[in-house]
Each structure stands twice: as structure tokens, then as C-alpha cells.
């Protein structure tokens, strides 16, 4: 049953991706990319990665769609038609080659089974994290504190430096947008200036 659901979702993902690649109307493309994010979020739920699914649904399907729509208002809603009819066959060939190589690599018998307990991801630090999160975190002294969500402890405590880096990345993105687009205060200033001149600016 779960295999059938996975296959159906992956098929939908492929169909959506093909539709995005073929569409020229950027409004439709934006909506389809939102649908793509929602489908990926569903796949993450099936893979038991609810935290990732949550983020994908909120950021990918929610905020990104709104921001892309905002960007569409500033540009054309229609992509330019291709100049050369066969220009996209090169990249297509490259993608097919790359995909075939990856699929071929999974056929290697030495590869760990999908979700298998002996996979390297489950044999190094993960068991230690799982054990210590329930019992204690960091220190050797046993503690009664119980933090049930292992993802949160891994994200904020074991991988605290990484998360600090992620926050700084988001901070940098915000600052870059402010530098490029003006931070949204320019218009307000102008409006206030006009309002004091003319008595009223807008309703």
C-alpha cells in the first residue's frame, strides 16, 4: 500500500515537473511549483520526516509562492519563446545520463538497503544521539529532562553551530534583499513627504 502511494506521489512529481518545464505562462508555473512543494511535503510525511515536511509545506508551498507572485508583478507573466528549437535537447541528454548513472549506482549490491538498519547513517552518531536525547543531552550526568523530539535536540543542540550558520544565511538573504530592493521603507518615506506637502496622499 505504502509503495503504491509512494509511486503515485512520485509519478505526480514527475508530471508536475514536466508541466513546469513545458509551460510558458509564469503564473501557471508559480502555481505548479507550489503544488510540487506540497507533493514533496507529502512524500516527506510518508518517509516519516514530519519536521522536514512541515518546513517544505510552510516555506515551499506557502511563502515561496507568494514571493514568486510578488516577483511576477515586477516582470513579465509570459516567458520568452525559445529561439532555437533543439536547444534543450543537450541539457535533456545530460539529465538522462546523470539520472541513469544514479539509478545504476543504486543497483550495486554493496549499497545499503533503503531504510535498512545497517546503513551508515544509522550506525555512526545517530544511535548515540537517540539514546542521549531521551536520557540526557551533552553531559555525562544523567538527568530527568526528557525532550521527545530528537529532531529539535539534534538541530539546536548537537548541531547548534550548523543552525547558527543557517540563521546567518537567512539573515544575509534578508539584508541582501533590503540592499537590492530598498527594504520597503523608501516608499513610506516618500508617501509621508508627499502627505505633508499635499495634505493627503492616499486613502
Amino acid at each position: 500500500m505504502i509503495v503504491a502511494t509512494n509511486l503515485a506521489l512520485l509519478a505526480f512529481l514527475v508530471i508536475t515537473a514536466c508541466a513546469i518545464a513545458r509551460m510558458r505562462n509564469l503564473f501557471v508555473v508559480t502555481m505548479l511549483s507550489g503544488i510540487y512543494s506540497l507533493l514533496s511535503a507529502t512524500v516527506f510525511v510518508l518517509l516519516d520526516a514530519v519536521d522536514v515536511a512541515f518546513t517544505e509545506a510552510a516555506v515551499g508551498a506557502g511563502i515561496t509562492t507568494v514571493l514568486l507572485l510578488g516577483a511576477l508583478l515586477l516582470s513579465n507573466s509570459e516567458a520568452r519563446p525559445r529561439k532555437h528549437r533543439f536547444a534543450h535537447y543537450g541539457p535533456l541528454l545530460l539529465v538522462i545520463l546523470m539520472g541513469s548513472a544514479l539509478i545504476y549506482a543504486t543497483l550495486d549490491p554493496r549499497m545499503p538497503k533503503f531504510g535498512g538498519a545497517q546503513a551508515p547513517a544509522h550506525t555512526r552518531v545517530a544511535p548515540e544521539y537517540l539514546r542521549d536525547t531521551v536520557r540526557q543531552v551533552g553531559r555525562s550526568k544523567p538527568t530527568p529532562v526528557h525532550i521527545p523530539n530528537v529532531v529539535t535536540t539534534t538541530l539546536a543542540s548537537y548541531r547548534g553551530f550548523d543552525t547558527l550558520g543557517e540563521v546567518v544565511v537567512i539573515f544575509t538573504a534578508g539584508v541582501a534583499v533590503m540592499i537590492l530592493l530598498g527594504g520597503g521603507t523608501y516608499r513610506q518615506r516618500r508617501r509621508r513627504g508627499k502627505a505633508s506637502e499635499a495634505g493627503k496622499a492616499d486613502g
Binding site: 516577483a71 533590503m178 520597503g184
Partner: peptide
């Protein structure tokens, strides 16, 4: 701290994009 930065960046980015046309 993460929540404060993420929400503030999202609001700022949205204001910047949405207010750009007016600018």
C-alpha cells in the same frame, strides 16, 4: 532567536518585493 529572524526576514522580503512596484 531562529523564529524571530525567520519571521522578520520573511516579512521584510515580502514588503520589499510588494513595495517595489510603487518605488
Amino acid at each position: 532567536g531562529v523564529g524571530v529572524t525567520v519571521s522578520a526576514v520573511m516579512i521584510t522580503v515580502f514588503f520589499a518585493f510588494a513595495g517595489r512596484r510603487g518605488v
